[in-house]
Design a protein around this nucleic acid. Structure first.
Lengths: 241, 241
DNA sequence: CCAAAAGTGTTTCTACTACACCCATGA
DNA sequence: TCATGGGTGTAGTAGAAACACTTTTGG
């Protein structure tokens, strides 16, 4: 065996997005149970090494299930991060030692995107603490997790551009067109006139108006709508470019 | 160390596209120098295990350089393939043994896309045989290489949709609008009227008409054009949606 | 002359944009 | 009654699509 080829550990890390009531994108970050070393409350992206007979997609699905309690979440692999220096600082190396009870020379990670309704109950079997962080309030994280998050933002935009229907994974089941507008604006950057947006959205047959309207608002109450995935799929619409 | 976490080898595999004179997409496949076992002339995607201090992007760049002799090629990581069964059949396992002189339990690979002008001289330092294969004439390949190629086709379409300028990596430096049309059609699937395409393309200021025209054609000779990357970059045009 | 493709012009249609206007609700 | 946002209508415009027409070349 040529000595310079390397045996490495492979992990998955998941960037789970949520959209809060103040129209901000959020990300789920976790803290591990700190068994002995209570000083090290490491906040990080949820992730795991892969098992010996496990595909990376399955590992990501497992991490998401352990994280949220949800069985099947929308997910998308977006990039393998393999910079040899990505786990090079003191505390990262120390963390790997305590976490995996072994000296690990190098870890390569495969990053995943996922989407979650922020009002969904988070039921973690593995982590003591799971919290939403608005993307501009994400603290300094270990490894290259900040870099992963930064790139995930570019990726989520592309994702929604290529498949508009996944945007509804971030909204409550019933939502107002303004909510959808705010979310779409937060993701797409370019300005869109809300009136035209309204007209366009309500022209889509897969956006179903409900009887229910907002309550206790200091202006005309907005109607709630729901998204019908079946109808969307049927006309396979790429109506928003 | 929990025993079920796995130490694996990580490789990169490159799908290099070319566009031939019969308007077909082609892929570069290689054959290794067969030192002893002359019966095993394994045709496969070019690839390599990564070195211990090497990022995957650098490994892909290295593979491409060893493959073509070209220093800097356009490349894009598109997916990590990690099915535990991807290297499970007899001959694949045997190949890994002879290639790397070691028993390898599992290899995960990171797949890359690259583009090459088909008239560019291929100067391989590593492989005895490097050949272009039209995509519908690609033979059965080892590991999951056929699957990788299949998915790379989806990816190259997305790539050109998101960055039109990379299409010119596949064309000769001077090309006719018909050539560009054929290539674009081969990639985008939906029918476009060639007249309208012509009009649209020639309206772009980064497509520069040359003095030279075709020779020895049995119809009106077409003008050659060239692509000006600087102008394209300046107006950062997304003119083709 | 004809066939074939280059290249240009014209018309139609669709879809986005900008913006005017009325509606509903709470303070 | 005013402010705020919901919701609808209309007119203007850019660009895509369909297609007719002229040009150039070889046979």
């Amino acid at each position: 065996m040529k000595p310079n080829f390397i045996h490495t550990y492979v992990s998955v890390d998941c960037v789970v997005f949520g959209f809060d009531y103040e129209n901000r994108l959020n990300i789920l970050l976790v803290q591990k149970h700190d068994e002995d070393d209570s000083e090290k409350k490491q906040i990080k992206l949820p992730g795991s090494l892969i098992f010996s007979e496990e595909d990376v997609d399955d590992a990501a699905q497992r991490v998401l299930h352990e994280l949220t309690g949800i069985k099947k979440m929308v997910l998308k692999q977006f990039k393998c991060f393999a910079d040899p220096m990505r786990a090079s600082n003191e505390s990262d190396i120390k963390w790997m030692g305590t976490e995996y009870k072994h000296d690990i020379d190098r870890i390569i990670t495969v990053a995943y995107l996922s989407l979650c309704k922020i009002d969904h109950k988070i039921n973690s079997s593995k982590y003591s603490t799971v919290d939403w962080y608005p993307i501009d309030e994400v603290p300094a994280l270990p490894f290259d997790h900040n870099k992963i998050i930064k790139e995930s933002l570019v990726e989520i935009r592309k994702w929604i551009e290529s498949d508009f229907s996944i945007i509804f994974e971030l909204l409550p089941k019933k939502f107002t067109i303004r909510q959808l507008y705010q979310l779409y604006s937060a993701l797409s950057e370019k300005y869109i006139d809300i009136k035209n947006f309204h007209k366009k959205i309500s022209s889509f047959n897969y956006i179903i108006p409900l009887e229910e309207i907002e309550k206790n608002v200091s202006h005309r109450a907005a109607r709630y709508y729901k998204f019908d995935a079946k109808i969307f799929k049927k006309n396979n619409s790429k109506l928003i470019k």
